[in-house]
Amino acid sequence: MTPATASARSRKHRHFPRGRHLAMRTEAEPRPVMYHAALLEDADTGRILFEKNSEMEWPPASMAKMMLLLVAYKKIKAGEFSLDSPVRISQRSAHTEGSRLGLIEGQVYPLGELMKAALIKSANDAAVAVAEKIAGSVEAAVLLMNQQARDLGMTNTEYHTVDGLPPRPGHDVDRTDARDLATVARALIDQTNLLRWSSREQTPFDGGVCILRNTNHLVGHFVGCDGLKTGFTFQAGFNVTATAKRGNLRLIAVILGAPSNQQRFEQAARLLNWGFQNFTAVAVLKRGQSLPVRVQVKSGPAINLVVAHSVKVVVPKAQVDSIDLAYRVPQVVSGPVRSGESLGQVLVQDRGETLAAVDALSPTTVSVDPRGPDGFTVEPPAAYRKEAQ
């Protein structure tokens, strides 16, 4: 099955811990269409605002490097390496084709500089060097990338390379889809600080050995854009996974199979603009916030519940006033009750549709104590006191 003829595969709804993938629509959708697949989502919640062929298999091309860099960053964070760890350029790295720095076998560069080159310039030789450093070989790095993809719930992704470079022209071997690309983009945004590199139009490599120019032409030209990664092969066409932030709203746009370099950026910009014009982020609840509901401990005190964590939702601007809260909380519970124990849920709803759910917690501990006048001892709230103020 080739990307040009592939249709969206039927898959079970995937679990996204940070939010539900639900497509939303407003009266006008972004036009015209000059791509094979596209997706726009809220980066914080993973909520899909627009999608077209979002589950259609497609080669990621150089966007495969996003997963390599996520794996590398996690190894650095775990203390296995540092950005300054020396990397000796191998023969395989030096002879990697496609977009490249022109690394020479035997040269030594800091790991962080090679990661930066793979992200900004999309340098294939740098990506191979990073893979060999963090995993011992390209093949071992591919295994780590696929494991990370499974951990993130990327069910339509399979990597065979670390750089997206086809083994021969027109025969891409890596597979993904727009949803999975947005998933790895969210992971990079949430779990790394790589946007500090992808947000640069250009930057020196290793103190000025050469200048890395960003392949993402939205950076520096589209307001709020600070990443992420482009990809091109003859089979995949022109692709981009872009992110931009304006105010408290960060969006991710994925364009697959655009007909030209210019069109991938124009289509991504059109999609992002449409999102910023039509949607807004609303902070609904704050962690530790006291709720207007009480739970009676049987034969004990009544407890004022608090919010477990902050909740933000993204909705069409015209529907902000329709957001409301629903409480699924029992009237009476049996003791004892632990501080931080969930006693119910708060549902954030828009016209009956549940946008988010958060636990309603007890801020106090109510212990069974036969010596107490009512058989219970209440300990003062502590865990959520600071943020509730």
Rank of each mutant, 00 (worst) to 15 (best):
P3V: 15
P3E: 12
A6M: 08
R9V: 13
R11T: 13
R14D: 04
F16S: 12
R18V: 13
A23D: 09
P30F: 00
R31L: 07
L39K: 01
D42I: 04
A43D: 07
D44P: 03
I48W: 08
N53F: 10
S54A: 15
E55N: 12
S62I: 01
M67E: 06
A72N: 04
A78I: 01
E80I: 02
D84C: 04
R92S: 11
S93M: 06
H95W: 14
G98L: 09
R100S: 05
R100T: 13
G102T: 12
I104C: 04
G106K: 05
E113G: 00
E113R: 02
L119V: 07
I120N: 00
K121A: 11
A131E: 12
S137R: 09
A141G: 08
L143W: 15
N146L: 14
Q147T: 13
A149M: 10
R150M: 14
D151Q: 15
M154K: 11
T155S: 11
G164Q: 02
P167Q: 10
G170I: 05
D172R: 04
R175I: 14
D177R: 10
R179T: 00
D180A: 11
L181W: 03
A182N: 02
R186G: 03
A187G: 02
N193A: 07
L194R: 01
R196D: 11
W197M: 01
S199C: 11
R213Y: 13
N216P: 05
G220R: 11
G220Y: 04
F222Q: 07
A236Y: 05
G237W: 03
F238K: 07
T241M: 06
T243Q: 05
T243S: 15
L249F: 05
I252S: 02
V254A: 05
I255T: 02
G257V: 06
P259L: 14
R270V: 03
R270I: 00
N273I: 03
N273F: 01
W274M: 01
T280R: 02
A281V: 04
R287N: 09
G288Y: 01
Q289N: 05
S290E: 13
Q296R: 08
Q296I: 08
A302K: 06
H309G: 10
V313P: 00
I323R: 00
V329A: 03
R338T: 14
S339H: 08
Q345G: 03
L347T: 01
R351G: 04
A356D: 01
A356R: 12
V358I: 04
A360P: 00
L361P: 06
P363W: 11
T364A: 10
D369A: 13
P370D: 14
R371E: 10
G372M: 10
D374C: 08
T377I: 00
R385N: 10
Q389A: 15
